[in-house]
Nucleic acid binder design. Structure first.
Lengths: 250, 250
DNA sequence: AAAACCCATCCGGCAGAGCCGAAAGCTTTG
DNA sequence: CAAAGCTTTCGGCTCTGCCGGATGGGTTTT
């Protein structure tokens, strides 16, 4: 752990994180929350406001819409996003459940887009939401198509942390499942991340068989029985295939 | 202009901006783009990666989905956003045009949400897009319900910059229009921001008559004649009223 | 296969920038 | 109107960000 990190950068983003996580606040309020000297926090907020990423109103600081903009632009640069867009809508319509697009980023699965019952009540599915790869259907779908040593590395770095009582924590079991994902063409998760929730996901591959993301459908266990699972699996696999074709045209 | 700004913070975000604006890049690539020493850029990127807002893949740096997440969270903390959501969808459906929700931030109008023809081809309407208040219907709708001295301040700081040949550049004319906005209850812009584009917008007020945002419908001039304008104005005013009621329940 | 080149990365000493205690302004509260 | 609680300013000491140069891996050129 070299710790080459630049202290100012670290602190600036600590402030951003705090504002993003727990909402707006005043100078001394934030100073206390982060256990920093008031004047220091003041200096940083000043600097951050000048960047345009933070704004003040009535001595209350908060994040600006610049984050939305940057996030949005990044998303548009990702080919998968463009390639999947229409498909995702279809999937949501055909299954009647939440359909999401995920990618892998820094050893985690991240939601890029959500379709149906937008970002409404669902606290777990919003753009930018991160989750462990091994504890979700889309994560497993992506792992299944990564080189084995890459998977080993991820397990090394992240561990197989249990999120619910059903999360896979044994590497053996994980590798077995990845094998069957490769055979079936889709992954499934039953309460491994959220109790009572079933997710079914298919990987999105490009023409050189690199994983680019995953399409996922989630719903309450009660609503998704054996036959519905097969239906859903069909729908998302078709969508993933179409996406793959689209990718080549982007 | 004291310039109290913290150099490290400034530089860190300059890098973020560059990556957001012109896409990913390597160390020396970015060093050149920003005219900074390579080793310095390397240090900053290192620090930024540690924050989780930037990621490296194959020596190529880019923004992460954290921006999406932060932007998303902010949006959810804004009451207007929640209050307007269903309405916006209805507006888009009823008018068949792009419907957007905007707020004021740092003397500018910013798009918070877009409905219909999602964030597709429309390069001008995406979440986070910023525009001058005086050159757009939603901007004028919001200005009309701000205290006069606030409007003066904004004109002082931002000026009435011409975006197209039809943009209002005369304060007198602007104030006249704001008056008629107050009488009609909605604002209109004909090619003042984008040539050939008509926008109609209604302000969203809370119970103490503070402006909280604006609902806007845009479309090509050719498609929106006199009668359609009135229809649209009715639809968005109704939506704005419902939103106002919703605001009290949030 | 050696040489030339282009990268990212490491190193380390110096200057200047970040740091924060203390004091000064502003509002709000009792 | 005093007191409390906030933001903001100030300024000198110290630490840290800075960047030229060295290192080394990787690729292309000769």
């Amino acid at each position: 752990m070299g710790g080459t990190s630049n202290r100012s950068v670290e602190r600036a983003f600590k402030l951003v994180d705090e504002l993003a996580e727990n909402g707006s606040g005043g100078v001394s309020d934030l100073a206390e929350r982060l256990d920093m000297p008031v004047s220091t926090v003041h200096d940083y907020l000043q600097a951050l406001v000048e960047t345009g990423y933070i704004t003040v109103d009535e001595k209350t600081y908060q994040t600006t819409t610049r984050f939305l903009e940057v996030g949005h632009r990044q998303r548009h640069r990702l080919e998968v996003f463009k390639a999947v867009r229409d498909e995702l809508e279809d999937v949501a319509a055909e299954t009647g459940e939440h359909a999401t697009l995920l990618i892998e980023e820094d050893d985690q699965a991240v939601i890029l887009a959500v379709q149906e019952g937008p970002d409404a009540i669902n606290l777990f599915a919003y753009p930018g939401a991160r989750m462990p790869l091994h504890a979700t259907a889309p994560g497993k779908a992506m792992l299944a198509y990564m080189p084995a040593d890459r998977v080993d590395d991820i397990i090394d770095r992240q561990g197989l942390v249990a999120v619910t009582s059903r999360t896979i924590t044994d590497p053996e079991v994980l590798f077995e499942q990845l094998e069957s994902v490769r055979q079936q063409g889709y992954a499934i998760d039953e309460g491994e991340r959220i109790a009572g929730m079933v997710c079914i996901a298919a990987p999105i591959l490009d023409k050189s068989d690199q994983v680019r993301g995953s399409i996922c459908v989630c719903g309450p266990q009660s609503r998704i029985d054996e036959t519905r699972r097969n239906e859903i699996a069909d729908v998302i696999q078709r969508a993933a295939n179409v996406t793959q074709v689209n990718l080549d045209y982007v």
